[in-house]
Simulated scan of single mutants.
Amino acid sequence: MTPRTILTSLAAAALLTGCSDGASGERARTQIWAVGSSTVFPFTTRVAENFGRNAPGGAPRVESMGTGGGIQAFCAGIGPQTPDVASASRPMTSGEFERCKTNGVVDIVEIKIGYDGIVVATARDGSDYDLRIQDLYLGLAKEVPEGAGFRANAATTWADVNPALSTDRIQVYGPPPTSGTRDAFLELGMSAGAEKIPALAALKASDEDRFEAVAHTLREDGHWIDSGENDNAIVQTLTRTPRALGVFGFSFLNQNASSVKAASIDGVMPSIETIADGSYPLARSMFIYVKKAHVGVTPGLQDFVREYLSDGAMAPSGYLADRGMIPLRADDLAAQRALATSMTPMTAPSTAD
């Protein structure tokens, strides 16, 4: 342990176990506190319920506020007024890591907990969709190429984007900017789709920042609708609006298979198998981030992480699989369990904001 790590741990201990925190007047906290992704929320909640049966501080407090909002709260500092764990449906960015560091959160443990896919879905009685990855960009981007530049996206139906698609109006309900699902959709769907278009592939080669700005800017004319952090609310909206599409995590599709159905992307349907093997284009990994300075201070924190990676949770027939989690492969799970034991801090990520 480095001198800086020792000082940080001592500071956390003073804040968490002292009579109160001088800045906020908040008393010591014995309950584990986890915040973050709405996609990961059902999994963390289930682990918390299981862990809480024997935990000294009771079941951990779990809050859904989106990946970005959760990491922001996590990175605010150390002590009882800040969370112990942030869940995320995408990796932490370099900017978030630096903000953590600025606020004294210098030892962060990154644990991969499983896989998920982003689905584009509609009501069971809606149209069937076989989308090309570029259809996502062409239907939902604020600007599309024209000549040597760009113009406002004028497509109003999916058939305007691709004659093989439905004549239904482009109306897509999706997560807001604070959501990791939104971030992953922009990267895995919008950017990947933009790269299929020659003019944008050339732009990426010449000016990657400009390419990202164009590929990641969604329409603001009513064809894309931000729908909050609750993916279940998007599912419910689709049942009332059968001609609309929604963007949310695969686990919510699994839980609502009787009312919604997925579109295929480049001919591949989302499933446990296609997400785990990476053949589904919108597959992603999910994470929890642990504040090492709180380990040994917040009672049971390391044991909570171990419960997340336990056989009972992570086995193919485990309780997280019942909620739609796509488990880690055996070698990957072993590596994450080793991290949960050693609590080795992550290095600065290369992923930018």
Results as ranks from 00 to 15, higher is better:
P3V: 11
T5S: 14
A12C: 12
A13I: 11
S20D: 11
A23Y: 02
A23D: 13
S24T: 15
A28T: 10
R29N: 13
I32M: 12
A34R: 05
G36S: 10
S37P: 05
F43A: 09
N54C: 02
N54R: 07
N54S: 14
G58A: 14
A59L: 04
T67F: 03
Q72Y: 06
Q72C: 05
G79C: 13
T82N: 15
D84F: 06
A86P: 09
S87V: 04
M92Y: 02
T93L: 09
F97W: 15
C100T: 09
V105Q: 13
G114Y: 02
G114V: 11
Y115M: 12
V119K: 01
V120N: 05
V120Q: 06
A121V: 07
A141Y: 01
E143K: 05
A148G: 01
A148I: 06
A154T: 15
A155M: 06
T156K: 11
V161M: 05
P163K: 09
A164P: 01
I170V: 04
P176F: 07
R182Q: 14
L188M: 08
K196R: 14
A199Y: 02
V214H: 01
T217P: 00
I234E: 01
R243W: 02
A244N: 08
V247C: 03
V247P: 03
A257C: 02
A262M: 07
G267H: 04
S271R: 04
A276F: 01
P281F: 13
A283P: 00
R284W: 00
R284H: 07
S285G: 14
V297K: 12
T298L: 01
T298G: 08
L301D: 09
E307L: 00
D311P: 00
A315D: 14
P316A: 14
Y319Q: 05
R323W: 04
R329A: 13
D332S: 08
Q336F: 09
A338G: 05
A338R: 07
S342P: 03
S342A: 15
S342F: 03
P345G: 13
